[in-house]
């Protein structure tokens, strides 16, 4: 396609837009190396003190570990639930499959503040408020629709003839699923897993409603920290978070690329 000349006015406006969009992320990097006790930008001096401070902050480290564990468990359970459900809805296409799909993805449409409150009330009554179980269920509810969407879409694009070929060659439905469908579905599963993990890991609103003294996620801990104090600690934590998120994305991209070349 021929390159279209872009007017300089548009270039300037777009550049401003990008700068505005990336400003809060970009500013955090130099701030994290601040040597000041309080937040001030630009910093009066640079050091690694806030990174060291994170290492000494048990609350933050515990919250990070809890978040990783929670997101991992949520991801695994998501996949275990979403794959069979997608299979039933796409391959078995029962009556009303579209309606069931809409209902199952409906939690995405509800604002998390409303869902958070709704869950808070039932969990409190059931005695699961501020428990790992409660926060786990909350995360499951908001991440499952993503996993279902991604996996169902991936499954619906798989050529069904390949599965039929396996059946004619003597593979029982179970063998077809494990030997053919599942391996071909792998890129979709990896994508769904990544999305589940990142959504769970970054989730703040539901966690704020469900958290408790011993059950707190990293975003919640950061939120409380920002709310109560203005120091560069969160900047250092943010940089580490960005690096962590990037690492997840790169790993997924690699394994997705791998899975794609594998299946193509």
């Amino acid at each position: 396609m021929e390159e279209k000349p872009v007017s300089p006015v548009l270039k300037v406006l777009a550049a401003f837009g990008f700068l505005f969009l990336l400003a809060p992320v970009l500013i955090v990097v130099p701030l994290s190396f601040s040597n000041d006790v309080f937040m001030s930008f630009p910093p009066s001096g640079y050091s690694l003190r806030w990174y060291i401070a994170i290492g000494a902050n048990a609350k933050l480290l515990d919250a990070f570990l809890f978040s990783v564990k929670l997101a991992s468990l949520v991801t695994v359970v998501n996949i275990l639930i979403a794959v069979p459900a997608s299979y039933a809805l796409i391959r078995k296409a029962p009556f009303g499959a579209d309606a069931i799909m809409s209902l199952l993805t409906a939690p995405l449409l509800l604002p998390t503040i409303v869902l958070g409150l709704a869950l808070l009330i039932v969990m409190a009554r059931a005695g699961y408020l501020a428990t790992p179980q409660g926060i786990f269920l909350a995360h499951l509810v908001v991440t499952l629709p993503y996993a279902l969407r991604v996996i169902a879409t991936a499954l619906s694009t798989l050529p069904i003839a390949v599965e039929e070929a396996a059946a004619t060659l003597g593979a029982s439905p179970l063998s077809v699923f494990f030997r053919i469908t599942l391996p071909m579905l792998m890129p979709g599963i990896v994508a769904a897993a990544a999305l589940s993990f990142l959504v769970s890991f970054d989730e703040v609103v539901l966690s704020l409603f469900m958290n408790g003294p011993k059950v707190t996620t990293l975003p919640v801990e950061l939120y409380h920290h920002v709310e109560s104090r203005a120091d560069p600690l969160v900047a250092a934590a943010s940089v580490l978070l960005v690096v962590f998120t990037l690492a997840v994305v790169i790993i997924v991209d690699r394994s997705l690329g791998l899975a794609k070349t594998f299946v193509k």
Partner: peptide
């Protein structure tokens, strides 16, 4: 990519600005 970052982090960036 900003979508992959917690709103807390991005809001913190705005506080710094």
């Amino acid at each position: 990519s900003p979508l992959l970052l917690s709103a807390v982090v991005r809001t913190y960036g705005w506080i710094a600005i």
